[in-house]
Amino acid sequence: MIQTDNLTFQYKKSEHIFSFPNIALKERENLLILGKSGIGKTTLLHLLAGLLKPASGKIVIEEIDIHSISRSKLDKFRGRNIGLVFQKKHAIQSLSVVENLQARLFLSGKSINNTVIDFLLKQLDISACKNSKINTLSEGQLQRLGIAMAVIHNPQVILADEPTSSLDDENCNVVIELLIKQAKLTNANLIVITHDHRIKSLFSNSITL
């Protein structure tokens, strides 16, 4: 469950104040947030993830007002309950695919279960590169690894920042369908923030900033 109320944000040394529409998602509900560049899409995602603190308003995830708790508790909450799919790949270059997923589980405080890892890699069709180093992966494999790292710890919320911006039509649909499928498997809320209108038909809920 995710709910936001009267959310605003202002960067230091900037006069512009971002004001965001209210969000109310029940369990398993997904949301597409559309908007052109510079409108505040990534800012909103970082607010929802607790990486930025709003100027006003509140964000409630799983009945917790995430900005009413201490920074250390928020870090732990984020690590266990939020999965982030970034535009830029954040895998550790010196580790293999499977080692990156093991590290993600460790950092989220979850037990490392190689059977679960193998199942997820199979679901995302990257089992063949399980032991490969990050710098040997293709762009498509990196994209799928990014999804795997976002969902391996069974988060309650999956936040994806422009996950299809560099993809052709076929792979665009593949990536979004994978995200929707993984969210459904873990009963998570999926929020995709993008300027890519090609994926609008795959979501029943959408808002435009």
Rank of each mutant, 00 (worst) to 15 (best):
K13L: 14
I64Y: 03
I152T: 05
I64N: 09
P163S: 10
D65W: 02
S111Q: 04
K13M: 13
I23D: 15
G79A: 15
R71P: 12
L84N: 01
V85A: 09
L52I: 11
N205E: 09
P163R: 04
N6A: 08
K53D: 15
K26V: 09
H90L: 11
Q182F: 12
T186A: 03
K200S: 13
N173A: 03
F9P: 02
G50S: 00
H67M: 10
G57W: 10
G79N: 09
M1G: 10
K36A: 14
G146F: 07
S56V: 10
Q123P: 10
H195T: 07
I193R: 00
I147H: 07
S37D: 15
A91Y: 11
A49D: 13
E62M: 03
G109D: 01
I152N: 04
R28L: 14
K26W: 03
S204V: 05
C172V: 10
Q141P: 10
G57H: 05
L95M: 06
L107W: 00
G35L: 12
A55S: 15
R78V: 00
N154M: 07
S132F: 08
P54G: 07
L7Q: 13
A91M: 07
A24S: 13
R71Q: 14
K89H: 03
E27W: 04
L52S: 05
A160M: 05
L185W: 06
V157F: 14
S166M: 14
L31W: 00
L121R: 01
